[in-house]
């Protein structure tokens, strides 16, 4: 398999003291959507800035499509598109003019230019406002314009740093729908940073969790969650005392990993709650234990983060996130 990104023992130390990246090893396959998930300050942006040839690592190596990001920077820059976390379009000219300027910077031949710009505007749903000043756009429209800029050159890999920060849920959804169409049509690899767990969950084929400059876990969303042990089904049984002997039948089911009882509720740990639930219900019914309530709790990426990074994601992220989001809104 051709690797889009390959990172070996990457270390970045700022000013000789801040260890932003502390030995990162990572590979990303071509054509995948890959999320680097972590709280603010975990090293996501630093890693992306090294991969996009903006800054040099202190030690270690990184390759993008086999090209060394330090020694072959100019070749790397021809293959990639990058959307920084902050707004990256000129607000005092129109959306169309932004694309035109970038098309010229990327040296897109004159006869293809208009067609490509039109295509990009159309794909991003910006045709209607193409001649308006970007200053009048909403946050979501600005993000879509940035993606349109990134699409112009049909890159082999797109680096997106917090692509939906500061956007409302509807705008986030719209941005991702467009990105996915683009990914499918052009088989472009998407490498994105995010601190929104649901975003990684929904839109990434693969996730790596980064904490304090280290990759602490990686896998698919499902895989990571299952690595926590399984899903929990809790039954509340009506009024009668629970007889532990009655549960023997349940214990015999091969997919049941563990059972615990508390007052009138039974908690059962299984690999897959949806698949297991009907069988357990059958057993309970046979044992004449009337169930009044069932609840399923699945591990979230937050739980995954807690396990691998040793802390709650939200606690660390929250305040700086609020500050940052406000700053973005003020700017946008």
């Amino acid at each position: 398999m051709d690797l889009a990104v390959q990172i070996n023992d990457l270390v970045k130390v700022y000013d000789g003291k801040v260890r932003a990246l502390d030995g990162v090893n990572l590979t990303v396959e071509t054509g995948k959507s890959f999320a680097l998930l972590g709280p603010n300050g975990a090293g996501k942006t630093t890693l992306m800035r090294i991969l996009t040839t903006q800054i040099k690592p202190t030690s270690g190596e990184a390759h993008v499509f086999g090209l060394n990001v330090v020694h072959e920077g100019s070749k790397v820059r021809e293959l990639i598109s990058y959307i920084p976390q902050e707004m990256s379009v000129w607000t005092d000219i129109s959306g169309y003019e932004n694309l035109l300027v970038y098309a010229k910077i990327f040296d897109i031949p004159h006869h293809e230019r208009e067609k490509l710009i039109h295509e990009a505007l159309e794909n991003m749903g910006l045709i209607g406002v193409k001649d308006d000043l970007v200053r009048t756009y909403s946050g979501g429209m600005i993000r879509r314009l940035e993606i349109a800029c990134a699409m112009l050159i049909k890159p082999r890999i797109m680096f997106l740093d917090e692509p939906t920060i500061g956007l409302d849920p509807a705008a986030r959804k719209a941005v991702w729908e467009r990105l996915n169409v683009f990914k499918k049509d052009y088989e472009v690899t998407i490498f994105f940073n995010t601190h929104y767990m649901d975003e990684a969950d929904l839109y990434a084929d693969e996730i790596a969790i980064i904490s304090q400059g280290k990759i602490v876990a990686r896998g698919t969303s499902e895989g990571l969650k299952h690595s926590l042990g399984g899903e929990l089904i809790t039954f509340t049984v009506e009024k009668i005392p629970i007889n532990a002997e009655n549960l023997g039948e349940i214990r015999k089911l091969h997919f049941v990993k563990d059972i615990s009882i508390e007052d009138t509720s039974i908690s059962i740990l299984v690999h897959n709650a949806e698949d297991s639930l009907p069988y357990i219900m059958d057993v309970l019914r046979n044992e004449r234990m009337p169930v009044s309530k069932v609840s399923i709790s699945k591990p979230t990426l937050d739980d995954v983060f807690l396990k691998y990074a040793g802390m709650r994601f939200e606690e660390k992220g929250r305040i700086s996130d609020v500050v940052h989001t406000r700053r973005m809104i003020r700017r946008g």
């Binding site: 800035r49 996009t52 040839t53 903006q54 100019s74 820059r77 021809e78 990639i80 990058y82 959307i83 920084p84 976390q85 902050e86 707004m87 990256s88 379009v89 000129w90 970038y102 910077i105 990327f106 040296d107 800029c149 700017r331």
Partner: peptide, 15 residues
């Protein structure tokens, strides 16, 4: 620099 424009410009093939 505060906005991302400069970062993006520097990631283009332009010297």
């Amino acid at each position: 620099r505060d906005s991302g424009i400069l970062k993006k410009l520097l990631v283009t093939p332009a010297p």
